[in-house]
């Protein structure tokens, strides 16, 4: 039986089998390639998406477990936190190669939704599972502080 989920506010009936990771449904079946494959074992965070409002590693989520859920990918993140993160990311020129950045951005939005004024420690803890091979961590941290400023203004 097909699994039905809502992806970026559109209901989708999926043909993939229930054990298929959400990541591959997004990329291969739905052609939403903004979400990246990094490791496939929840070690890098590149595949982070919002699942019912919470950041999750889509490589670890079997679609059979999320029937009826809401999924938001980097292509459709929205709201004041997303706007602030987007603006801050551009201002701080965070991105280098960019491969991890869709995961970093989704995770940062999740952080600011939970904690609109994070400390360095809060950021390091919440973002600790999002690996960047270009080591943009300092700029990520600065951009999250900047996004918090934008939210507070």
């Amino acid at each position: 039986m097909a699994t039905t989920i809502t992806v970026n506010q559109t209901e989708r009936s999926l043909i993939s089998s229930e054990e298929t990771p959400l990541l591959w449904v997004l990329r291969d079946e739905l052609k939403l390639t903004g979400t990246k494959y990094g490791c496939g074992v929840a070690q890098c965070g590149a595949c982070t998406v919002m699942l019912d409002g919470q950041p999750v590693r889509s490589c670890q989520v079997a679609i059979g477990d999320i029937a009826g859920s809401d999924v938001t990918t980097i292509e459709a993140v929205s709201g004041v936190e997303a706007d602030a993160v987007r603006q801050a990311w551009v201002e701080m020129d965070v991105v280098q190669c960019g491969f991890c950045q869709s995961g970093q951005v989704v995770q940062a939005i999740g952080l600011l939704e939970l904690n609109p004024e994070p400390t360095d420690g809060d950021i390091d803890t919440y973002m600790g599972g999002n690996v960047c091979r270009c080591a943009t961590y300092v700029r990520v941290r600065k951009a999250i502080h900047r996004a918090a400023e934008i939210l507070a203004a």
């Binding site: 074992v41 929840a42 999750v56 670890q60 079997a62 809060d122 919440y126 599972g129």
Partner: peptide
């Protein structure tokens, strides 16, 4: 208070078949 375990450790009865993946 920090980062929920469920970010990586999904709620699932489907066996984890990928070596080194997050337990679930």
């Amino acid at each position: 208070e920090h980062l929920t375990c469920s970010t990586c450790h999904s709620y699932s009865e489907i066996p984890q078949t990928v070596p080194h993946a997050a337990p679930r």
